[in-house]
Lab assay of single mutants.
Amino acid sequence: TTVEVQGVEYRFDNPEEAEKFAKKMAKSLNLRVELHGNKWRVE
């Protein structure tokens, strides 16, 4: 599972970890998070 934060990609073996990371990043950067296939995008 991939998390893309403002163009930078982070890879996770565990989808739940990816989701937690994406939501945490979105909250700290005041952005929103969307799931596209198996990629979380924070923008």
Rank of each mutant, 00 (worst) to 15 (best):
E16V: 12
K27D: 12
E17D: 12
E34S: 14
L31E: 03
T2S: 10
N38K: 07
W40A: 02
F12A: 00
A22P: 00
P15F: 10
R11S: 09
A22M: 02
E17T: 08
E43A: 13
K20F: 10
W40S: 02
Y10E: 00
V3K: 00
A22I: 04
K23M: 11
T1H: 14
E43Q: 11
F21T: 01
K23C: 15
E4V: 14
F12G: 00
V3P: 00
K23T: 07
E34I: 13
S28C: 15
P15L: 05
R41N: 05
F21Q: 01
F12D: 00
N30F: 05
E4P: 01
K24W: 14
L29E: 03
L31T: 06
L31M: 13
E19A: 08
K27S: 13
V33Y: 13
L35S: 05
K23A: 07
M25S: 04
T1A: 12
Q6G: 09
E16L: 12
Y10P: 00
H36G: 04
Y10N: 01
S28E: 15
V42A: 04
V8D: 04
R41A: 07
R11E: 10
A18L: 01
K24A: 14
T1R: 09
E34Q: 12
E4G: 04
T2I: 15
M25H: 03
V5K: 01
E17I: 08
K24S: 13
D13Y: 08
H36Y: 09
R41M: 13
V5Y: 08
K39C: 15
N38G: 13
N14C: 15
S28H: 13
L35P: 03
G37P: 03
L35V: 08
V42R: 00
G37R: 04
E43L: 14
E4R: 07
T2E: 06
V42E: 04
K24E: 14
E34C: 15
E9L: 13
K23P: 00
E34D: 07
V3C: 14
N38W: 04
P15V: 06
R11T: 11
A22Y: 02
V3A: 03
T1D: 07
V5G: 01
K24L: 13
L31F: 07
Y10G: 00
T2L: 14
K20I: 13
N38H: 06
R11A: 09
Y10K: 02
R32N: 10
E4F: 12
E17C: 15
A22G: 02
V42K: 01
K39F: 06
R11H: 13
V3I: 02
E9S: 10
K39V: 14
G37T: 04
E9I: 13
L35G: 04
L31R: 05
F12P: 00
F12T: 00
E19I: 06
K27Y: 11
M25L: 10
K39M: 10
T2H: 07
E17A: 10
D13S: 11
P15N: 07
K20Y: 11
A26K: 01
N38T: 08
L35D: 03
N30A: 05
